[in-house]
Amino acid sequence: MSAGSEIEQSSRLEPRFDPAGTIPCITVDAETGEVLMVAYMNREALDRTIATGLATYYSRSRGKLWVKGEESGFVQQVREIRVDCDQDCLLLKVSVKGGASCHVGYRSCFYRRLKPGSAEELEFTESQKVFDPEKVYRRSS
């Protein structure tokens, strides 16, 4: 059995983090299957997610862990964690307290799509924001 076959048939979690120590994570609504967001995890974020049941990610731009909803209150309660065949991508099935996962205020980070017949024009698929990010993410100066 090749190394690839071993990981593909294994019943052990052995995530294959990239050279930067991260792994992509697709997050979907546990009830509807709607894709809510894509983020990254490092080993610590994955371990915390498993231990707490709260979706915890690694911000590559800020270089730190963040629990989804820690500022907004729109926490993602993990219902199931899946791993793809090569164990180089994760899938979280979550329930979202408050119903929003996007920091822009929409339910999903995928609130736009390419307009049919266009090579560059986007159209909105969500007509209303769940929350006003200006109010939720107030920063003191």
Rank of each mutant, 00 (worst) to 15 (best):
R138S: 10
S101K: 12
D18A: 06
A100D: 09
S140H: 12
S59P: 03
T56L: 02
E14V: 05
G21K: 04
S59D: 06
V104P: 10
H103G: 09
K135G: 08
I50D: 11
G73I: 07
G117V: 00
Y40H: 06
G69W: 02
R43M: 00
R16K: 13
V28N: 12
Q128D: 15
G4P: 09
L91I: 02
E126R: 03
E44F: 01
W66H: 04
F74C: 02
S11V: 12
L54S: 09
E6K: 09
A119P: 04
I7C: 02
I23S: 03
G105P: 01
P116A: 06
C89G: 14
D29Y: 04
C102Q: 08
Y58A: 02
E6N: 08
T22S: 00
D47I: 01
V75K: 09
A55D: 05
T125C: 11
A51V: 04
R112S: 05
F74V: 01
V35C: 13
S72W: 12
V136Q: 05
R16F: 11
P116T: 04
T27Y: 00
C25E: 07
E70D: 15
S11E: 14
M37V: 00
M41R: 03
T49S: 10
L54F: 09
Y58Q: 05
V67Q: 15
S59N: 09
E121Q: 14
D29M: 04
G117L: 00
D84Q: 08
L114H: 07
Y111T: 06
C25D: 05
E123W: 09
C85G: 12
W66I: 00
L65T: 00
P133N: 06
E31A: 14
D47V: 01
I26Q: 14
L92T: 01
P19A: 12
A30P: 00
E134L: 11
E44N: 00
P116W: 04
E6H: 10
R139M: 14
E8V: 09
C89R: 12
K97A: 13
S2N: 15
D18T: 01
S61G: 11
T56V: 01
F131N: 03
A39G: 05
F131Q: 01
S61M: 07
E134H: 08
R43N: 00
G21A: 06
S2V: 08
S59V: 05
G63V: 05
Y106K: 10
G105Y: 03
Y106F: 15
R48K: 13
A51F: 06
V75Y: 10
F124V: 10
G117Q: 03
I26M: 14
V83H: 04
T27F: 04
E34C: 08
V38G: 06
Q76E: 02
G73E: 11
A45T: 02
A20P: 08
H103R: 10
L91E: 02
Q9L: 11
P24T: 07
R79M: 14
